[in-house]
Structure formats: C-alpha cells, structure tokens
Computed example of a mutant assay.
Amino acid sequence: MHVADPQRHARLPTRRAGRSGLALGVATLGLWQNFGAARPFAEQRELVLRAIDLGITHLDLANNYGPPAGAAEESVGRLLARDLAPYRDELVIATKAGYRAWPGPYGEHGSRKYLLASLDRSLARLGLDHVDVFYSHRYDPKTPLEETLGALTTALDSGRARYVGVSSYSAVRTAQAAELAQSMGLELTLHQPSYSMLNRWVEHPDAAADGRSLLDVAADVGLGVVAFSPLAQGMLTGRYLDGVPPDSRAARGGPLRPEYLSADNLAHVRGLAEVAAGRGQSLAQLAIAWVLRDPRVTSVVLGPRTTAQLEDSLRAISGPPITPDELAAIERHAVDAGVNLWGPRSSEL
C-alpha cells in the first residue's frame, strides 16, 4: 500500500474549470500511450504514484487507451484497489468514449448505445461506481447531437459521472453542443482539445462560430479547457533533432508520423529550443508553460514515459512567466506543423 506524500496538495496550483465548481491542478497525468499491456505494471505504478506525490490529482483515461483498448483503465483499476483506495475522493478520474473500443457497429462513434455501454465497461475495469468526468471523445456527424448529449445526461443523472464534456469538437460544434445542452438542462463542464506550439487550431477563428475560435467559445459558454498533447507527440522535447531514437514513439510506430519530422518543422523546433535555452528551461518546459500562458486553459495533460520526464515537465509550473520579447520570438516558430491527428476525425467535421 502506497502512503502518499503529505505535502502533495501544496505543490501544484489549481484553476477553476470554466464556470463550474471543479478546480483542477494545472497539470494532468494522461494515460494514452504509456499504459499498454506490453509495459510492466510496476513501471506504470511507479509513474502514477510519483505523479500523485508531486501533486497531480487528475488522471485522464479513455476506453481505447492501451493497447489493447481498456488496458490503461485496467491498470488504474488495480492501483485504485491496491494503492489509491484511501485517496479516491482526492482524485479526479476522467474517461472518454468515441473511438473504436470493440468490434462491430456499436464499438465506436457517438450513439447512446455505444457511449453508455462504454461507460459501463470503463467503470467495471476501473472498479468504480462512477467517474468524475465522462467525455464524448469526438464529434460524430452521423449521430444527432441530441442523442450524444442525451447519453451524457443519462451518465450524470444515473450517477455514473459527476461532470461531462466533449473532446476535439470544433468551435462551431462546441457552440452548438453548448446551446443544445442548455436547452436540455445539461451542464457541460470541460472541453479537451489538442493544443501545442505546433498545433494551434484552437486559436483559429471559425466563420461558422461567428468568427470565434474554440478558446473563445469555451470562454463564452463557461467550459474549462484541458489541453492535451502539448509536446506535439514528442516533437517539442528535442528528441528528434538529430534523428529518430530507437526507443522513441516514432520508432515504435506511434502517432508521431515520419512526415511530421520535416526539415521545415525541425527548423522551427530548433528555434523554439533556442528560446527555451535562453530561459534556462528544457524545450518541453517551455512548451508546457506556453500552453498554460492562456488563462482560458484550465489544465495541460502530460504523457511522460518515465518519472524523470514527469519531473522535468512539472518544473515548467514554477518557471518564470514568458516575457513579451520571448513570446515574439516564439511566435516566429510556433507554426502549425500539420500534426493535428484528430482534425479529420473530429475537429474538422
């Protein structure tokens, strides 16, 4: 049984999630890529427990995280039963449904049947009677938005979730969802988009949303923003400036595609690394601090592979504010690099 560090809650600032009463630490532990069945459970345990000792209370999951799908939730379920049972009410456990989690026509997308079945499966894997946050993981143009939001309403009303939200919805789809939710008496609390110095789609004006960006819409309707992939799948760690390391995500066939590592993109990464060095920071620390510079961002999701990477990333929280001159230097290199994996499957629909 793990005994958590008694000073943990003093280590991480919190921000309020939109207009809700939910306060989240500015850093969240994401369990997307490093909690599959191929990784020893002891390593997963070490990383999660270290994150909690460092003040992280928010664990971000989805039904398809692993691989295989469900493996990450099973690992967290083991930890909740063994090490974290005394701390359950100190934690925010979030999960999502939208991408493929099992075979057949009801194993993905946004239908009521899929979303609620997925939530029940997630709860069984986690060994919980409720999660704190349940997200629609992506917009589904083939399912009426009323049906998707109705499933989120049922998740709340049945007590299987405490808060609900959406992930990777565009500005206009988020505005539509918020308006419809209000008419249904549903309170959406969070939006989880990808956001980094190389993936700035959340800042772009959307003509269909009256020229507002996703960040604008989230602020207008009172949604907290939990930004994921702040390191652009590892591009903003500097690991790829001299080639692809054999133990990297790119070498393992992960979401970091070889075409992302173009000469142009790497030149911008080098420019950003120079700004970070001038601040006495790692590139990863600068990337995290940059996302958190916007007060509309509630929390940033970190996906470290090791405790050393986690500790390096968290040092961004206590770093100096980014100055106007540094922001100007960053702006020259913080360009969209075509790394939004989720655009064609959600935010561009």
Rank of each mutant, 00 (worst) to 15 (best):
residue 220 D to L: 10
residue 246 P to A: 11
residue 171 A to W: 02
residue 327 L to W: 00
residue 216 D to G: 07
residue 125 R to Y: 00
residue 327 L to C: 08
residue 323 T to P: 02
residue 25 G to P: 07
residue 193 P to L: 10
residue 205 P to A: 08
residue 193 P to E: 04
residue 230 P to L: 06
residue 335 V to N: 10
residue 169 Y to L: 12
residue 243 G to D: 04
residue 70 G to Y: 01
residue 345 R to M: 15
residue 117 A to E: 12
residue 116 L to K: 04
residue 67 P to L: 12
residue 25 G to Q: 01
residue 194 S to A: 15
residue 6 P to N: 10
residue 160 R to F: 01
residue 82 R to P: 09
residue 244 V to F: 08
residue 97 A to H: 01
residue 71 A to Q: 09
residue 25 G to D: 00
residue 39 R to M: 03
residue 130 H to S: 09
residue 157 D to G: 11
residue 129 D to E: 14
residue 42 A to V: 09
residue 316 A to H: 12
residue 134 F to S: 03
residue 89 D to F: 08
residue 37 A to F: 12
residue 91 L to Y: 05
residue 348 E to F: 15
residue 288 I to G: 05
residue 76 V to N: 00
residue 152 L to E: 00
residue 161 A to I: 04
residue 286 L to S: 02
residue 138 R to G: 09
residue 80 L to M: 14
residue 279 R to T: 08
residue 309 Q to S: 08
residue 174 T to V: 14
residue 75 S to M: 07
residue 269 V to K: 02
residue 180 L to E: 09
residue 3 V to P: 13
residue 67 P to D: 08
residue 253 G to V: 03
residue 345 R to T: 15
residue 259 E to M: 05
residue 338 G to S: 08
residue 147 E to F: 00
residue 279 R to Q: 15
residue 117 A to Q: 09
residue 109 H to P: 10
residue 229 S to Y: 07
residue 240 Y to E: 01
residue 43 E to D: 14
residue 162 R to A: 05
residue 272 L to S: 03
residue 348 E to Y: 11
residue 99 Y to W: 14
residue 146 E to V: 11
residue 278 G to A: 07
residue 104 G to C: 11
residue 119 L to H: 00
residue 23 A to Y: 10
residue 113 K to S: 12
residue 303 G to I: 06
residue 128 L to G: 07
residue 216 D to H: 06
residue 24 L to Q: 05
residue 311 E to N: 11
residue 318 S to A: 15
residue 168 S to D: 15
residue 224 G to M: 02
residue 231 L to I: 10
residue 45 R to G: 08
residue 57 T to R: 06
residue 163 Y to C: 01
residue 342 W to S: 15
residue 59 L to V: 11
residue 128 L to D: 00
residue 261 L to E: 02
residue 34 N to H: 13
residue 180 L to T: 13
residue 103 P to R: 07
residue 328 A to P: 05
residue 315 R to S: 12
residue 243 G to K: 06
residue 180 L to R: 11
residue 84 L to H: 02
residue 293 R to P: 09
residue 58 H to A: 08
residue 307 T to R: 10
residue 196 S to M: 06
residue 22 L to R: 02
residue 203 E to L: 15
residue 210 D to L: 13
residue 334 A to L: 07
residue 324 P to F: 00
residue 340 N to Y: 05
residue 134 F to H: 01
residue 269 V to T: 03
residue 3 V to K: 13
residue 207 A to I: 14
residue 215 L to V: 09
residue 155 A to L: 06
residue 257 R to T: 13
residue 163 Y to T: 07
residue 11 R to G: 06
residue 107 G to R: 08
residue 192 Q to E: 15
residue 131 V to H: 00
residue 324 P to G: 07
residue 238 G to I: 04
residue 75 S to E: 01
residue 170 S to G: 09
residue 208 A to K: 13
residue 110 G to H: 05
residue 80 L to Y: 00
residue 154 T to Y: 09
residue 142 K to C: 11
residue 155 A to I: 04
residue 182 Q to N: 13
residue 50 R to N: 13
residue 290 W to N: 05
residue 254 G to P: 13
residue 186 L to F: 03
